[in-house]
């Protein structure tokens, strides 16, 4: 009987211990996560709404927001397409050195963003492999927008590929083979059979990728060149204005970035919930 009671409670620890453990966990979350986040919004509005709006409308801030959005979109597109391709290749086919390639997918996670940025400087900088050729043809990659997009895509690459790899493996080749046998073209098979099966995973990966891309600082800082009004992203802009004693403006932009992060968090949870429901209904 008493064993049953314990089972019903779900735990064997005395109530006071349970309560204090919960209290510790909750207060830790509050102090470490919620309080600093709330404080950003508080600081953003500390100099009033006018300063808040003006700092977001500022020419340089607007450019930084635009560049962040553009480079995020480009990075998502690149990581999405190549992540899908990589997951497909590794999930469906046994290529030589399979385990090695799967491990390599995680390389961008393992490497520090600063090193990632420097890798691109070593490739495309004047001293780099392609530097002299690019210079002769007047193509600017590093210290310009293409460089920012490239490093952002690099650091966010694993999100989509990692998310899709297990799904592709679980999907198996049967549905595809059936579609092909019934006369579907490869494109039709891709759009009608494969993509629907992967869509929630893809969406989940894309959201993770986007939220990381928006916030990326280290790698972008190395390749940006920090040209005001041209190659600043939102995180770089926040650091710059903070260092210029414009604390209100810095926190206004920081609150915008946090807001974008919260939105992607909500989207992510929504996608996970929908995917779960779909799975259960099947």
């Amino acid at each position: 009987m008493s064993d049953l009671r314990l089972l019903a409670d779900g735990v064997g620890e005395p109530a006071w211990l349970r309560r204090s453990l919960i209290a510790i966990a909750v207060s830790f979350m509050a102090v470490f996560l919620l309080l600093p986040l709330a404080n950003i919004f508080h600081a953003a509005l500390s100099e009033g709404w006018r300063v808040f709006l003006a700092s977001l409308h500022d020419e340089n801030a607007a450019q930084a927001i635009r560049l962040s959005l553009v480079s995020t979109a480009a990075a998502v597109l690149i990581s999405g397409v190549f992540g899908l391709a990589a997951a497909w290749l590794l999930g469906r086919h046994k290529i030589p050195g399979h385990g090695f390639w799967v491990a390599i997918l995680d390389l961008p996670f393992a490497i520090s963003p600063v090193v990632a940025g420097l890798m691109f400087v070593l490739l495309f900088g004047l001293d780099g492999w392609f530097g002299p050729w690019l210079d002769r043809h007047n193509i600017q990659i590093i210290f310009a927008k293409p460089g920012i997009v490239l490093v952002t895509a690099f650091v966010t690459f694993p999100f989509v590929a990692r998310e899709l790899l297990p799904l592709v493996q679980a999907l198996g080749p049967e549905a595809e083979e059936a579609a092909m046998l019934l006369g579907a073209s490869p494109w039709q098979t891709f759009w009608r059979v494969i993509l629907p099966a992967l869509k929630w995973g893809l969406l989940y990966g894309v959201i993770l990728c986007a939220s990381r891309a928006m916030g990326e600082f280290g790698a972008v800082s190395v390749v940006s060149g920090h040209i005001r009004g041209e190659t600043m992203t939102l995180p770089l802009h926040i650091e710059a204005v903070y260092n210029e004693y414009q604390f209100g403006a810095a926190f206004a932009c920081a609150s915008l970035l946090s807001l974008m992060a919260l939105v992607s968090l909500a989207l992510k949870s929504f996608v996970a919930w929908r995917a779960q429901r779909e799975l259960e209904s099947q």
Binding site: L126, D135, G225
Partner: peptide
């Protein structure tokens, strides 16, 4: 005129690496 700002040493390094 566009401006780029950063630590002096870092900025010199960037120009050496191709910041125009």
């Amino acid at each position: 005129i566009s401006q780029s700002h950063g630590g002096s040493g870092k900025q010199a390094r960037s120009v050496i690496d191709g910041l125009p």
